[in-house]
Amino acid sequence: MWGRGRGLAAPAPSPAGVHDTVETLAALFQYLISGLTNGAIYALIALGFGIIFNATHIINFAQGEFVMLGALMAISLYQAVPWLPAAFVGATLAVTLLGLVFERLALRPVRDRSPLTLIIITVGGAVLLKGLAMLWWGKEAYNLPPFSGAQPLHLGPATLLPQNLWVLGVAALLLAGLEAFFRLTLTGKAMRACAYNPVAARLVGIPAARMVQLSFALSAALGAAGGILIAPLTLGVYDMGTMLGLKGFSAAILGGLGSSLGGVLGGLLLGVAESLASGLISSGYRDAVAFFILLVVLFVRPQGLLGGKP
């Protein structure tokens, strides 16, 4: 490695050219891995937005904070009982419960259900949760050990950590499980019915309030799982949720709000675009790229890639 500088300066131009192409491809592959890992987390968050939106037509701006809470709770639990599966399950359950409490205390009592009011309430909820997390965990970052080893794996010309595979694998499992739940179980079908036509759903005896609660529980759980998966790569800190939440929402809109396939596609696309942009264009404008894509989608095709009419 130390000698690569000399290798590049080889006099014959053509081998260096081939070498360059290989290196460029390797770099592209590396960007892709990084982008897909982040994208998988965005996808989980985007789905969380979608589930709540379908059930209630609310956008929960506090979704990102569930991600942060998942990560930090798992870290705290792991410090108490150093067994990762327990920390994962425990933290996900705790955040799920919190999602239910949030719905009960912050959203159910609201009488004026205009988007403006609901946006402000959930933004307030996000700020509040972040502030409370800061008081509880302090302002420092914490480490969560990777699920299995930290030795990098070589995948062709690129390298990745076992944790990258964990993120992609568990995210895929969760997404598949969710899809199965919505398609195959009675409760899942009832939730979908509520999304299509709440009045009709109520007429046929589906408990709408219960479905709303379930949607908050599911999306909090998804967010928490995303936070725990990514924490070994990114560390856990009280203010990690805001940006993740916004990116997740951008992904949801990019794919089409309310469409689960769209959310996944949007998340992966956004992650890869960001990674390519910081690798190929300028790393300083990484976040700007994500939001620029969002603006373009909103202005040109607000229903997103796979969404119906908004």
Partner: peptide, 16 residues
């Protein structure tokens, strides 16, 4: 190369 204060993945910059 540069990165944001709250960025959580610098592999693109390091790959470069």
């Amino acid at each position: 190369e540069v990165f944001g204060e709250k960025d959580t993945d610098m592999t693109p910059q390091l790959t470069k």
